[in-house]
């Protein structure tokens, strides 16, 4: 199927995702489905194959693609808002359990490989607004989404997006500290854009790992 829902409006698209997945199950069909819409992909797929420039970047379950993006591109492409990437001072050594972010030490799951230049990747929901958090920044915008909101925070390392609850908004201009859910941070080789293998990979949550047919 080649983007069959592309021209529908948002509500109807969600409904049709559910219908198509039901149809797939009922027919016991083999389905290859093409889309640019990550929500469709997440909602329907057993496996997602992320492509760019004619190349397959990652082929895995929605859970895997979301929590362990194989490359920086995949982390930015999947997820709304996308994964935050922050430049690590210096590089990382194999076996390191902490990296330095603009002078601040941040603990990370042990990495198995070294890289001369590295990026730390963390999803907006795994950043915690924490007064004692070492990474400091200033809120520049607060995107209200009903069930939750996204704080856009300017830091010395660039703009970060942080997911907070619907009643936890902060006015633009507020100074905030941030910390990360350690087991949810990933390290990437900044020159190749590839995920550095390490301890994070083994810390997946339990569960089916399948996004399932629910939208």
């Amino acid at each position: 199927m080649d983007e069959p829902l592309g021209t529908l409006d948002a509500d109807f698209r969600e409904l049709m995702c559910l219908e198509l997945r039901k149809l797939h199950n009922a027919l016991n069909a083999t389905t290859v489905y093409v889309t640019h819409d990550q929500r469709e992909a997440m909602a329907m797929a057993d496996d997602i194959v992320v492509m760019s420039g004619g190349e397959v970047l990652q082929s895995a379950s929605p859970h895997e693609v979301y929590h362990f993006p194989a490359t920086v591109f995949v982390g930015s492409f999947i997820g709304s808002p996308p994964m935050n990437f922050l430049a690590v001072d210096g590089g990382v050594e194999a076996g390191a359990e902490s990296v330095s972010l603009s002078g601040v030490a941040v603990s990370v799951p042990r990495t198995a490989t070294s890289a001369a230049k590295a990026l730390l990747g963390v999803r907006p929901e795994h950043v915690v607004i924490d007064e004692r958090g070492a990474l400091r920044g200033r809120v520049i915008a607060d995107e209200y989404l009903g069930s939750h909101q996204i704080l856009v925070v300017e830091t010395a390392l660039g703009v970060m997006r942080v997911r907070v609850g619907k009643d936890e908004g902060l006015v633009a201009g507020s100074q905030v500290g941030m910390s990360f859910a350690k087991e949810r941070t990933l390290l990437y080789d900044a020159s190749s854009g590839k995920l550095l293998p390490g301890a994070a990979r083994q810390m997946a949550v339990n569960g089916s790992g399948n996004g399932g047919a629910y939208v």
């Binding site: 997440m42 929605p62 859970h63 949550v205 569960g207 790992g209 996004g211 629910y214």
Partner: peptide
């Protein structure tokens, strides 16, 4: 059903 992806 629990979808860990969307915490749903």
């Amino acid at each position: 059903e629990y979808s860990p992806l969307r915490h749903l």
